[in-house]
Amino acid sequence: MFVNRFRGLFSNDLSIDLGTANTLIYARGKGIVLDEPSVVAVRQDRGPGGPKSIEAYGKEAKGMLGRTPQNITAIRPMRDGVIADFNITEKMLQHFIRSVHESQILRPSPRVLICVPCGATQVERRAIRESAAGAGARKVYLIEEPMAAAIGAGMPVDEPRGSMVLDIGGGTSEVAVISLNGIVYAASVRVGGDRFDEAIISYVRRNYGILIGEATAERIKQQIGNAYPGQELLEIEIKGRNLSEGIPRSFSLNSNEILEALQEPLHGIVSAVKTALEQTPPELGADVAERGIVLTGGGALLKDLDRLLMEETGLPVVTAEDPLTCVARGGGRVLELIDKHGGDFLAVE
């Protein structure tokens, strides 16, 4: 106990956005110190049952996704916002926590705040808590993702006034109405950046008979993806394996095709927002209608997504500044507030 406290003196408070696609770490007083894909490459020599070792973490491991030999597997230990592979997640967290501390002598023992999807079950929350403790955290706080996102976006969550936030992550999208430092309504749908990629992959396979990988699909989404028909038509040249010939072929896609491909996951998000508005108490609904919905998370970077939501809901929709880091920054702010006002504040577990 005392040793932990001593080690804690040499550790920074960390707020971790343990996402399906990316893990971000915000260190108190330093800002975002780590932004790496949540990917781990595991090497297993001497066949199945052989000893396992970690080959790479983060960006390096992501480059290996879909490009590994037999003895290496690139794993994404998080699925749909929760832990899919407990041990690998623990190892990954341990590596990330160490890499944000300069001291190599003393094992860091920080206080850690981790964001969990509001749809996470008790079992899933416990898994996250324990993997962080196993990774060396002295104390683990959990906070619901939309709360952290709203604080990170700078919304006045302490006012007696409804604020709606929509956080579109890699695995899940969370929509929540917040008032008086608490969540009034929250819903989580398992639609996010990954589902967009899958939709693009299946669209290309269905319409072109060509198979593309996840990395290519992500690149298409980032470069020409959009959520609302715009005036300009963007094109991209990509390569994939022709299913009938079995030979890699080059072809081009345009933004309207991607819009068509993304219809299904986008509909999932829009209906989640509409359901939230239906379920919100009328007073808070009126507040939301006046100020609007705030978009955060990597999904908010999809072109014209705010436009789509504006058209569908008839409400003002604004994209937060730097939406990718909102959750991690919000978590860091919560850590400061915990120190200032005590731990029971802000529905922190």
């Binding site: 969550v157 302490d158 507030l337 200032k340 731990g343």
Partner: peptide, 28 residues
């Protein structure tokens, strides 16, 4: 400043805070 100043709704009991830079420095 994008960071909004947030306040608890109820009087709070301030916990021990070992992480402020001054206390960290003094402890070390």
């Amino acid at each position: 400043d994008l960071e909004s100043e947030l306040h608890p709704r109820s009087p709070s009991q301030v916990g021990t805070n070992s992480q402020t830079p001054v206390i960290k420095l003094v402890s070390v």
